[in-house]
Amino acid sequence: TTVVVGNKKYTFDNPEAAEKFAKKVAKKLGATVHKTNGTFKVK
């Protein structure tokens, strides 16, 4: 599962961990999490 934050990509074996990370980053940046085909995008 990939999490994309700006131009950085983070890969997780565990989708739950990926989602948690994405939400944490989004909260910090005041952004939102978008899920597309198993990829979480923070923007």
Rank of each mutant, 00 (worst) to 15 (best):
F21E: 00
F40N: 03
K23R: 13
G30T: 03
V33N: 01
A17M: 12
F12A: 00
T39A: 13
A31S: 06
D13L: 11
T1M: 08
A31Q: 05
G6Q: 05
K27D: 08
G30F: 05
A26D: 01
T32E: 08
D13Y: 10
T11H: 12
K24Q: 10
K43W: 14
K20Y: 12
A18E: 00
K27H: 09
F21R: 00
T2G: 05
D13Q: 12
K27V: 08
P15M: 11
T11R: 14
V42A: 01
K41F: 15
K20N: 11
E19F: 14
T39R: 07
V33S: 02
E16D: 11
T39F: 14
E16S: 11
T39E: 15
N7A: 10
A17C: 08
L29C: 05
K23P: 00
G30K: 07
D13R: 13
Y10S: 01
G6C: 11
K24G: 08
L29Y: 08
G30Y: 04
K8V: 08
A31C: 05
A18C: 02
V5R: 02
G30Q: 06
K27M: 10
T32N: 06
L29K: 03
V5Y: 04
P15I: 10
K23V: 13
A18Q: 00
K24S: 10
F40Q: 03
D13A: 13
N37C: 09
T32M: 07
F21V: 02
K20C: 10
Y10M: 04
L29E: 03
T1Q: 06
E19S: 06
V4L: 14
N7H: 12
T32P: 04
K28H: 09
E16V: 12
V4Y: 14
P15D: 09
A31M: 14
K43D: 12
A26P: 01
A22E: 00
T11S: 10
T39I: 15
V25K: 04
E16P: 05
H34D: 09
A22V: 04
H34Y: 14
V3E: 00
L29V: 05
G6Y: 14
K9A: 10
T2Y: 14
K24A: 14
V33A: 03
V5S: 03
V4K: 06
K41Q: 15
V3R: 00
D13M: 12
T11I: 13
T39Y: 14
N37D: 12
E19H: 08
P15G: 07
K8L: 09
T1N: 08
D13G: 11
T1D: 05
Y10W: 14
A18M: 01
V3M: 01
E16F: 12
K9L: 10
F21W: 12
E19K: 07
V42R: 01
K23E: 10
G38Q: 05
F40E: 03
K43E: 15
E19W: 15
E19Y: 15
A17F: 08
A26F: 02
K28P: 03
K24Y: 15
P15V: 11
V42T: 03
G38S: 06
N14S: 11
G38I: 03
V3D: 00
F40W: 14
K24C: 14
A17I: 13
V4N: 05
T2S: 10
V3G: 00
N37W: 04
A31I: 05
T11F: 13
A26H: 01
T2N: 10
T36R: 06
F21P: 00
F12Q: 00
V3C: 04
D13F: 10
E16I: 14
A31E: 04
T39L: 10
K20S: 11
A17G: 06
K41T: 15
G38E: 05
K24P: 00
H34L: 13
K35T: 07
K20I: 12
G30A: 04
G38L: 04
Y10T: 02
T36G: 09
G30W: 03
N37Q: 06
T1Y: 14
K27A: 12
Y10H: 03
K23Q: 12
T39S: 15
K35I: 11
H34Q: 13
A22S: 04
N14T: 10
T2W: 13
F12K: 01
T36S: 11
T2Q: 10
K9D: 04
N7T: 12
K8R: 13
E19V: 06
K43A: 14
A17T: 12
K27T: 08
K35R: 10
N37I: 04
N14A: 07
N14R: 08
K41L: 15
A22W: 02
A17L: 12
V3N: 00
D13H: 11
V42L: 06
K28V: 08
A18V: 01
T32G: 05
K28N: 07
G38V: 03
H34C: 15
V4Q: 10
T39W: 09
K35H: 10
T2D: 09
K20F: 12
T36A: 09
A22T: 02
V25G: 01
T11W: 13
A18Y: 01
V5C: 06
V4G: 03
T2F: 14
K23W: 15
T1F: 13
T2I: 14
F21H: 02
K43N: 11
V4F: 14
K28L: 12
A31V: 07
T2P: 06
H34V: 15
K9P: 05
V42K: 01
K20T: 11
G30R: 06
K28Y: 09
N14M: 07
N7P: 08
T36P: 02
T2M: 13
T2C: 09
N37P: 06
T36E: 15
A18H: 00
T36I: 15
G6E: 04
T11L: 13
V25L: 12
G6L: 09
L29N: 04
V42I: 11
V4C: 11
E19M: 10
V4A: 06
D13E: 10
F12G: 00
F21N: 00
K24F: 14
T2R: 09
A17W: 09
F21L: 03
K9V: 13
K8M: 11
G38M: 05
V33R: 02
K28W: 08
V42N: 02
V25S: 03
A31D: 03
